[in-house]
Amino acid sequence: MTATDNHNDCLELSDEQLVAQTLENRERFSCLIRRYEARLFRYIQRISSLRKEDAEDVLQDAFISAYRNLRDFDPDRGKFSTWMYRIVRNAAISAVRKLKVKQKYLVPDIGEDLMERIASDADIARDADRGFDSAIVRTTLDGLKDDQREILLLHYLEGMGYIEISDILHIAPGTVGSRLSRAKQAFQKLYRPDARHDATRL
């Protein structure tokens, strides 16, 4: 079987099927790695200020840790994706501590539509002409507390629901709701539409 055949075969299978196959055949883990590496790499960059090389190392360690603990994954308790996010998050936090890098959430270039979602959901874009600027939104996000910024990123950038965020952060779904609500309020309070457009880009 060629690499391409193998990859095409992966696309048709669910995460749970691939996990079961990986437990039988280690090589099948490549399907899961390919499926998630890009998303998880972006996530590491968003929640830490690690250099690209360090972020790659973190992701590699996270995948190895995931393989080692694969039998701990329980499909009845959540998705494989959230299980992987949890592992990656823990690995990133450990790396930040180990490397003594000041943890800083980065909001890289993201689509205007996502910025719009954050702003409109926080009732910022109330003007008919949607006069908000992605640079200001980015600066506003940077001014939030870490836990508020993280929950906004997970909800709006990673597209996670309450249960998924609950599984990643290990907090109650109700707490996710209240924390998200507070984060949006804080965002609304900090957002200054008339702020200078040359705000520091991250």
Binding site: L23, R26, E27, F29, S30, I33, R34, E37, E56, L59, Q60, F63, I64, Y67, R68, N69, L70, R71, D72
Partner: peptide, 17 residues
């Protein structure tokens, strides 16, 4: 990355707990 991870799993004979 896939190569790196799989090579390490092979080299160190990592097995699921």
């Amino acid at each position: 990355l896939t190569d790196k991870v799989l090579n390490e799993l092979r080299d160190k004979d990592v097995r699921p707990v």
